[in-house]
């Protein structure tokens, strides 16, 4: 999965934001883009509809610089959450090194979250990937809104395996870097 190119001494890791439509995946990436030192990041690409729904993906490359002689780079992708864009979601998952599942904490989105989680497992399975071995974290987003489920309830619904999970308010940047750091560190650990 992670590409280590020994000859050119480059390492490329792919982290994918997954989750239900309007859950806040693009918002997470926009926050990262706005706060990471411009020296360290490339251009953010968003293939989106006029109403800002992700159509194909958002993409942001981030350079970690040279680590022990290896130029190390993270490729951050979001998938489109809308149910009918599954072909794109599946394609983006190819070769994934780490996954951040962005859940929408609002009670009325509970079913949509569960459906998105099932969809993630299905798509990974179709590639023969195993979520138990892929670095994985969950962000319960939109904690600023009313009518949200408790973290305990969300955990019960979405995180039976007890992977690292975080509360988020992505529009204010809360939990954004915390979640990204957690998954990124798990990813680099898989390379040693």
């Amino acid at each position: 999965m992670s590409m280590i190119n020994y000859a050119s001494r480059e390492i490329n890791c792919k982290i994918v934001y997954y989750g239900t439509g309007l859950g806040g995946k693009t918002t997470n990436l926009e926050w990262v883009h706005s706060r990471v030192d411009p020296e360290s990041r490339g251009k953010m690409i968003s293939l989106a509809t006029e109403t800002d729904r992700t159509l194909f993906f958002d993409f942001l490359p981030v350079d970690l610089g040279s680590i022990r002689g290896f130029k190390t780079r993270f490729h951050l992708y979001t998938v489109p959450g809308q149910v009918y864009y599954n072909a794109s979601r599946k394609l983006i998952l190819k070769g994934v090194d780490g996954i951040i599942f962005v859940a929408d904490s609002q009670a009325q989105r509970a079913e949509a979250n569960i459906e998105a989680m099932h969809n993630l497992f299905e798509n990974l399975e179709s590639y023969g990937y195993d979520l138990e071995t892929i670095p994985f974290a969950i962000q319960y987003n939109k904690r600023d809104l009313d009518n949200i489920l408790s973290v305990e309830d969300l955990r019960e619904q979405l995180n039976p395996a007890g992977v690292p999970d975080f509360e988020g308010v992505a529009i204010e940047g809360k939990g954004v870097f915390e979640t990204l750091r957690a998954v990124s560190k798990l990813v680099v650990k898989t390379l040693n």
Binding site: W31, V32, L64, F70, L191, N192
Partner: peptide
């Protein structure tokens, strides 16, 4: 693999770049 020293250094870079 790249060794634990590599991943430890990488974690340091992650903390530095993904601070915020």
């Amino acid at each position: 693999g790249l060794g634990v020293n590599w991943s430890r250094d990488a974690e340091g870079e992650i903390d530095r770049i993904f601070k915020g």
